[in-house]
Nucleic acid binder design. Structure first.
Lengths: 127, 127
DNA sequence: CTCCTCACTTACCAAGAGGTAAGTACCGCA
DNA sequence: TGCGGTACTTACCTCTTGGTAAGTGAGGAG
């Protein structure tokens, strides 16, 4: 509670950015919102396999606090809430792009990202 | 236990990359290793303010498993272990660059990323 | 002789992230 | 009448993350 401004004294930008995307579903929410533009709560929930309502709201709220998404509530009779990326959210998504490509590469290589043993006097794996 | 190959079935590349950099000090280790090239254990420890030995080894080991850093053990009398980035680690660092810049922007703006609320009356949502 | 350094490992503990399930209030459909 | 969908909130619980502190074993400094 009351930890609204989540900001430890960051050491570098990576730190600050990682803080904002850390969370099991944050990255996926960003991704989906980027791909679909505007999404309703239930749409997001269905789009993310396995997310619980609690976590989705929690993440969405934090991302709203962080200025990544905007939340529009329509005072309609079946409640309707729409989420979309803000400018900062879009920018973050773009900043995340190369990281995503790196991740894809990693997946392609089947986690075996080769480690050309330089000239180690002692085999590190034996310890 | 035995969760050495940390790889959930990733949904997208962001997922996979975030998995690898998630950890309180991973980003900083990457950063420092990139800046200084080769570092000894104690050097890294001194470079990261507040890191415990346990966490540093733990992160370093995981990053080694993930092929981000290489570890060279010299069978010397005062033990000497050197860490450096692998190609994958360097690539990750480059992929992290835009994210770092985004984070710097966020820091500069003093967490106030957009949210254009000109002169609205104080409400619960404005907190 | 004792402490410090190196690079760790291990045990224990607290905080938090995240999961499950239920409740809420109202509506449309069968 | 009862169910499902809407967008949540709340309580409870577990598992993970990370912190503290101590131990290890050999060498060098005081």
């Amino acid at each position: 509670m009351a930890k609204a401004p989540r900001n430890g004294p960051y050491i570098c930008g990576i730190d600050a950015a990682l803080d904002v995307v850390s969370g099991k579903w944050k990255g996926l929410v960003l991704w989906d919102l980027h791909a679909h533009g505007i999404r309703r709560f239930a749409e997001l929930r269905r789009a993310l396999p396995g997310v619980s309502e609690k976590m989705l709201t929690q993440h969405l709220r934090q991302m709203e606090e962080d200025g990544l998404v905007h939340r529009t509530v329509y005072a309609e009779v079946p409640p309707r809430v729409e989420y979309g990326l803000t400018e900062a959210g879009e920018a973050l998504n773009e900043a995340l792009q190369p990281l995503g490509e790196w991740g894809l590469e990693r997946i392609r290589r089947g986690r075996l990202t080769v480690v050309p043993e330089p000239d180690a006097p002692l085999s590190a794996s034996s310890l």
